[in-house]
Write a protein that binds this DNA or RNA. Structure first.
Length: 364
DNA sequence: CATCAGTAGATCG
DNA sequence: CTTAACTGATCTACTGATGG
């Protein structure tokens, strides 16, 4: 007997950062607001992190250079990100989701999934009512709008929440999944970005329907086994990944833009140390002892290179961490395309919970 | 072939 | 008139080596 179909909700805050800035600057009304990550290299170098809908109408999108956004919208309000502010609001908002369903997964600062199946006993009507109530609650209590999607899987729920924005509400019960997905562009699928979209287009695959009628063998031979299968099943709306309450990150990293391009390690080592200390706090400081250390560099011509080292024992002190980074950066500067414009550090391969407890007990 | 180490590539906001 | 502008964080696929 097949498992009963699940009912998953996906909540996506609309233009979250820009909406928060608008709330914090009521005099801006519906003026275009562009929230930016300033790299500090020049007064306006950096990229757009979030754009209000009036700014989006002018062609401004997340990820584009600030200079480009300024030329599209010279009169917009350009503000730096206030991450603490968004993060604390995000926590307040999504904690209200707990209680709506049995499990809540905060997927990012502005997105969360909720598994409603058991709470509504499989009733779509009840699930829809519950999520509409949640949507109004967020609007009322936070003056922020969100879009909501409902589907039998996380995959469909996420696409549904993106179907109509801002303030959208889209419910796709199991029997409507093919009709809903078929006309959509392949770009709507998770994991399909510009590169995959272009590769699919070269096979004349532009919609989910076209993807769905493509053989598994064709997809695997163009995209490899893992990605090919993922595309095959995604086009059918098939996704049995569970809503997970707490996902442990597999790695932590810091990457930053240098004030000046670097042709050697020495001029940037102090910056590495201060980022290393912050990353040490974020990982080992929270009991996540790491067995892998990596560094990365992005050259002034945007080429990327990296070095990684696996440790036989977890890194046990910030001093050792600095020393490992020194070693890796020396190697990187010998092999990379110089000079470097941006550099970064990364830790990963965290020890298991049991090892963590033993090691942290040992270290006091 | 299952796993690991190291690297580049891709995605998302 | 056309072009270029360009962060920060995370995850995953691919490749080659190694051991059962």
């Amino acid at each position: 007997m097949p498992l009963p179909s699940r009912i998953i909700g996906h909540v996506d805050m609309d233009a979250f950062f820009a909406s928060v800035e608008r709330m914090d600057h009521p005099e801006w009304r519906d003026d275009p607001i562009i929230v930016c990550v300033y790299s500090g290299r020049t007064p306006d170098s950096g990229v757009v992190s979030s754009a209000s809908y009036t700014a989006r109408q002018l062609g401004i999108k997340a990820g584009m250079p600030i200079a480009g956004a300024q030329s599209l919208c010279p009169a917009g309000h350009f503000v730096p990100v206030h991450h603490e502010r968004y993060s604390s609001l995000s926590g307040d908002i999504f904690s209200k989701l707990v209680g709506v369903g049995s499990i809540v997964e905060v997927a990012s600062i502005d997105e969360a999934y909720v598994d409603l199946s058991s709470r509504v006993h499989g009733s779509w009507a009840e699930a829809e009512g519950t999520m509409r109530d949640f949507q109004s609650l967020i609007q009322k209590e936070f003056s922020l709008s969100c879009s909501v999607g409902l589907g039998p899987s996380k995959l469909v729920a996420k696409i549904a929440s993106d179907f109509k924005k801002p303030g959208g509400f889209t419910s796709v019960p199991p029997e409507e999944v093919p009709r809903f997905l078929d006309p959509l562009p392949v770009k709507c699928l998770m994991g399909v970005g510009p590169k995959t979209e272009e590769e699919l287009a070269s096979h004349s695959i532009r919609t989910v329907a076209e993807l769905r009628t493509t053989g598994l063998d064709v997809l695997v031979s163009s995209f490899g086994s893992a990605k090919g299968q993922h595309l095959f099943f995604s086009s059918r709306g098939m996704d049995d990944s569970p809503v997970i309450a707490h996902r442990e990150p597999k790695q932590h990293s810091r990457i930053w833009t240098l004030a000046q391009d670097a042709g050697s390690y020495d001029p940037v080592s102090l910056g590495v140390y201060s980022n290393a200390d912050a990353l040490w706090e974020e990982s080992a400081g929270n009991g996540q002892f790491f067995n892998q250390v990596g560094v990365v560099g992005i050259s002034s011509r945007m080429g990327q290179s990296s070095k990684t080292k696996s440790l036989s024992l977890p890194c046990s002190s910030p001093e050792q961490f600095r020393a490992e980074l020194d070693e890796l950066f020396r190697l990187l500067f010998e092999s990379a395309d110089l000079p470097l414009r941006r550099i970064g550090i990364r830790v990963g391969s965290f020890s298991s919970a049991i090892k963590q407890r033993r090691l942290s007990d040992f270290l006091g």
